[in-house]
Amino acid sequence: MKKTILLGALTVAGLAATSVSASTADDVRARGKLNCGVSTGLAGFAAPDANGVWQGFDVDMCRAVAAAVLGDATAVEFVPTTGQTRFTALASGEVDMLARNTTWTFSRDVDLKFEFAGTNYYDGQGFMVPKALGVTSAKDLDGATVCIQTGTTTELNLADFFRSNNISYEPVPIETNAEALQQYGAGACDAYTTDASGLAASRATFDNPGDHIVLPEIISKEPLAPLVRHGDNEWGDIVRWTLNAMITAEELGVTSANVAEMAAAPGDNPEINRLLGTEGELGAMLGLSSDWAVKVIAAGGNYGESFERNIGSSTPIGLARGLNALWTNGGLLYSPPFR
């Protein structure tokens, strides 16, 4: 009997390790949208509105970058992240950037390998207590139960503050802002601590904001900044100069209302012309179109417009500009020149 021999061919699959991706900007263009990590919901900074559209100060930052890179401020996929998941989401490439009231610290910048693209909100940690508690200073909080979002710098500041003032407290660690407010509302904790801007935003969502006070002590410096992965400097530059463009636009009086007009008819201020791309090659240096800043400002306005629309004194959150005013108005916002 004729015997055929079949030899099965074993194909060893090529086990190439995941290739290091091309630049983040190319990935974003290829995908057609920006993946932006935001908080799980903080009124004024990042929260979906009644129609399910994300709105807020941090959300505007995401939209501005999308406008600069893709020319479309709506081409953003918002990825809600908690204090615990945000860094893993960014490091693993799940999001292209984080705009999530994240404090710029040495160890995050250096040890966690992230790149902070400039402060977009100068904040500090504060305490909120019910008025009925009769507390007027954070130093009166000896023995109090304090609700805190876990995985944040506020957790460390809180420990330092109580230890250095030699008073005791009971921490109640909580995963998200919403759960913390629920616990605080039920009286399961005497005080809630987070960044002062977050406290103001949360207080505005209460039924009776007047029943709660934010204590005068600010116990830390919290420069909140958008951040990207370490190592892709071109992408870091895009995010950084998008923020700078918004700040510079406010300084130069370029608003969402007049930007189209200013770009169409170049005036005699050379810095405005360079910003809006009617003079020089700044856009091409970033690998963007020459009118990238026009799109940014047309989409969400300049820094001041975004601030006033989302968290400013006319909104329920009612934050004053304070440290976040332009340097020309006594604040800390100071963009390097567009040159």
């Binding site: 860094f87 490091a91 160890s107 966690l112 876990t150 995985g151 957790e155 109640v172 660690p173 995963e175």
Partner: peptide
């Protein structure tokens, strides 16, 4: 962690990882 009980997942697997970046 859903109720803020500080078990090993919340300390070592949560805050420590988050503060040190040693996932």
């Amino acid at each position: 962690i859903a109720v803020g009980y500080m078990d090993v997942r919340a300390t070592l697997g949560g805050i420590t990882i988050n503060q040190t970046g040693r996932e």
